[in-house]
């Protein structure tokens, strides 16, 4: 007879685990990673490896410093740091080898400061990958915003795109001026940009995978992107802005993989609607204001109000009074109160 286990109900549980979810996210990131490698070759590979290494090593060293045994670390290793490292690498430009310290330092910052300092998996307030990305952007400005590597193939009008990402000039100038079509943006051919952000089609494949595996609800990224695109159109007074504004920059990567991060997004449906609409609005507005690092800062900003959203917007329990009825009730109460007041006043007079 084996030992009898006593534990709380339920005694049957779903097979899905945190590690499984993170593995799904990694699989979903695979197409974008492969696209990045194809476009930018060895430089991308080095950046990715350094970033992932930095992220995982930071987590492990942190836990070792907290006197956790190697065995325990391995058992609780849930792949979140791998996801963080990979996501961070995908948001970095394919850097020259002499800048090897950038992915390393930013991933150490991402996991060390943004995640472990706050208490590790599930406790971070902002998305670690975005924190790392912003850290890199602020700390190492020149390699991050200029002198970007040209993709290995695709026809690039070198004059038009020598200094900035397509988005920067596009929102300033009229569309199509630099010879980048929507199709180019979709496929990433001839577009300069970050490792994972260039090939949108790869990101979309990842999105479909996440939706099919039910890791991410399709509504959320769609709401974010649609709101952002529509507001861009409204501000530009032309529907032609929709596709370029959606397909360029880090919007898709941000919407699919960063904004939907479980830890830093609201925990219920209604709060999520508000969150993603707000994200779209903030992103679109910021884009017209600053033009750089927009998606990162928008998500970072909105991450900070998630705890408030969780507190303020909560689902109503099953069997709660329906809202119209509730309003009617409140109105009736108010009327009764006012009536009493008037009566009192009348009596006094």
């Amino acid at each position: 007879m084996s030992d009898i286990i006593v534990s709380a109900s339920p005694h049957v549980r779903k097979k899905r685990t945190t590690r499984g979810i993170m593995l799904d996210v990694l699989i979903a990131l695979l197409p974008a990673t492969v696209a990045g490698l194809v476009f930018f070759g060895a430089r991308a590979a080095v950046t990715i490896v350094l970033s992932v290494f930095g992220a995982v090593a930071t987590e492990w060293v942190w836990l070792l410093c907290k006197k956790t045994s190697i065995k325990a670390i391995a058992r609780q290793f849930d792949l979140t740091s791998v996801v963080t490292g990979l996501l961070l690498a995908l948001t970095l430009p394919p850097l020259d080898y002499k800048y090897f310290y950038i992915p390393l330092l930013s991933s150490i910052f991402a996991v060390g400061v943004a995640k472990m300092l706050f208490g590790g998996t599930g406790k971070n307030i902002v998305n670690p990958a975005i924190a790392g990305r912003v850290f890199a952007f602020i700390s190492f400005q020149s390699p991050m915003v200029s002198g970007w590597m040209r993709p290995l193939f695709g026809s690039v009008d070198s004059v038009a795109v020598s200094s900035a990402t397509p988005l920067t000039s596009m929102l300033g100038d009229s569309i199509g001026a630099m010879g980048v079509s929507n199709l180019d943006l979709l496929l990433g051919t001839g577009v300069m940009g970050c490792i994972g952000e260039t090939c949108k089609i790869a990101l979309l494949v990842g999105f479909v995978y996440l939706v099919v595996r039910r890791v991410v609800k399709w509504q959320w990224p769609v709401i974010y992107v649609a709101v952002c695109g529509l507001i861009s159109c409204a501000m530009g007074k032309s529907m032609n802005y929709f596709l370029p504004s959606v397909l360029s920059g880090g919007l898709l990567l941000g919407a699919i993989f960063m904004a939907t991060d479980y830890v830093t997004s609201p925990n219920n449906k209604w709060a999520c609607y508000v969150y993603y609409v707000l994200l779209g609005v903030v992103t679109a507005l910021l884009r017209f204001g600053t033009k750089i690092e927009v998606v990162s800062f928008a998500i970072l900003l909105l991450n900070l109000i998630v705890p408030l959203l969780n507190m303020w917007i909560r689902p109503r329990p099953f069997g709660a009074t329906p809202i119209p009825q509730l309003i009617k009730q409140k109105c009736a109460d108010l009327k009764a109160k006012l009536g009493k007041k008037k009566q009192k006043e009348g009596e006094q007079q």
């Binding site: 549980r13 945190t18 979810i21 979140t80």
Partner: peptide, 14 residues
């Protein structure tokens, strides 16, 4: 049939 309970931190997945 039954699962071993090995709790890890909540990831707020909802």
């Amino acid at each position: 049939e039954t699962t071993e309970d090995n709790p890890s931190p909540c990831i707020n997945c909802g």
